[in-house]
Design a binder for these strands. Sequence first.
DNA 1: TTGAAAGCGCTAACAC
DNA 2: GTGTTAGCGCTTTCAA
Lengths: 361, 361
Amino acid sequence: MATKKRTRQQKPENKRLDIRDVARHAKVSIATVSRTINRVPSVDKDLAKRVWKSIAELNYFPNTQARALVSGRSRILGLLISEITNPFFPELIQGFESIAVENNYEILIGSTNYDVPSMESCIRRLLERNVEGVAVMTFGIEGPLLNELASRNIPMVFVDEAPPSPRVSTLLVDYRQGIREGVQHLAALGHRKIAFITGPLQQRSCQLRRDAFLHSLEEIGLKLPKEWLPAGDHTLEGGMRAMEEILRLKELPTAVMCSNDMTAIGVLRVLARAGLRVPEDISVIGFDDIHLAEFVNPPLTTVRMSRADLARAAFEALRIHVEGTEKTAKQIWPIPTRLTVRQSTGFPPGTMPKLASRTKA
Amino acid sequence: MATKKRTRQQKPENKRLDIRDVARHAKVSIATVSRTINRVPSVDKDLAKRVWKSIAELNYFPNTQARALVSGRSRILGLLISEITNPFFPELIQGFESIAVENNYEILIGSTNYDVPSMESCIRRLLERNVEGVAVMTFGIEGPLLNELASRNIPMVFVDEAPPSPRVSTLLVDYRQGIREGVQHLAALGHRKIAFITGPLQQRSCQLRRDAFLHSLEEIGLKLPKEWLPAGDHTLEGGMRAMEEILRLKELPTAVMCSNDMTAIGVLRVLARAGLRVPEDISVIGFDDIHLAEFVNPPLTTVRMSRADLARAAFEALRIHVEGTEKTAKQIWPIPTRLTVRQSTGFPPGTMPKLASRTKA
DNA sequence: TTGAAAGCGCTAACAC
DNA sequence: GTGTTAGCGCTTTCAA
């Protein structure tokens, strides 16, 4: 009778096996099963073998919720992105997820859609599910986010700029390098009139990209009329609008750099529609190097910022705080960028170096 | 002393508030707090008000894991897709997620990447997290999946074809309608030589699309040499390869339909590279109507299969089984398709109706 | 209508 | 090295 303490008499059908079933089957205590599963070294080899055998025979696997409840560890990481339909993000998600899953974490994706209410709803969801850390890949600091998460001391990682906090790290993208390469590539081809279509400037990241561009221009002694610095919004449509704006100007640039690839693809679209050839009439450079960049017409010259790098660094940054014992202060994770030359860049119009001019140069 | 049953003396800092804190603050029992939160009608109005006030003041929210553990309901739905970097899927995810979140579900995304091991790993993850239902949007039945999930009686929804099981429903896409519209649109323009690039034919969905095409062709008395039915794989690169194959043939079709938009975009790319104009030299039709379709050059005429429809139907199909008491048998959810005409389709070459021929027609 | 208490499946002291 | 047991935070009988 004493053994029948549990109310449940029979395993109701469709009820998942629990640790007790395994213990019974292997003729050990549930503690031993638990220890075996968690690979506590002190377990006797033979017992462990028996337990694993039972686990296999019964096809048992532990209940994550129960584990999370008692251990205080959900093994869930939050991944906050701006917008899943922007191709940049799926590529990032893919990388982050695969590393997370390899390490037995699950990820919860939240799309902030650039607006505060949906961002708050995302945070609430993450909090309710007890995420152990959050990667904020929205390319901007999200104010309210901070308070809610940081006050709970949840590890976070941001891109470009992070609030100072002990368990917060930063992925520091080296925009300078790649964008400078882009500018110098254009300059080397002979371009002097280079426009830049920015992203949404509320995002720190977009300011940085623009600044990197302006700086690179200055470095080589070029000036930029401000009409050549229109704002896009990192969407294809935004790129189209910005390029249309440029086309209405009296003086046209011979090259256009863009704050991201979707913008550049919009630019390509408008140019094609306007009957301008790329790169013969105008050169275009993007930023990100999304998969699609290689397949537009012409294949896009662009600055690569690796999603794999970003994903890996984000995960590692979180892991150090989530799993580590070290109380290290805020960490900086550098992310390089580099120009990928394809076919959307060429000599400026009217300077096509024929054999003659080539020898001249 | 009796009240000090709990070991924990002081709330450790950074410890989340629990239901006891709220109960203490509102001076009621935890049962009342629980009932209030779960909107059990029997709770006294005044008490409930007091509880809600405490909840607000303390900024309390319940622990999802604990809830899940005791209630047996995780409020998590699985969403299985083929590949997150195919733009079709993010658009689908977005729809599914927003409906799910509205209804207080969380989603767990699994990318099967077209291979069995990673599919199995996905299923394991879903099972471990106790998903309440799974939307299998991989456009193919996944054998092993079935057994693991179905044997646990977990509600599922498939596209096109589902294993017969009481808690499984099917989203039945009406390929016929949209694809017939596409074929007839081409025929009406005067095309008689229409090729079709299939998707990966292991997928039932791709067979159905091809069959719908063949059937539509037959309907209007057209024949198809089998060289005009090359296989793509629903990627841009696959579309390029298939189109290159076609271009090597002695006799070229005047129009190409594709099993999905990414394929069509690849086709466009190859044609542009080959110096063929679309639609003057050859017409192209896609399938899906992804966002990008509108922005390629030229804007793609394509058959729309709404991701929003798909997402909504998938969610509702699951919800009925997850929440419902009804033991309805397998359900069918029809999903319509419809042609969207843009600019990648036109008259076949050599038939450009000048004024003369137009009057003749 | 409310509260006390059992227990969801598991981990981690603690005892042996 | 192994087993016993006290909870993790919550929902849900069962009594009152």
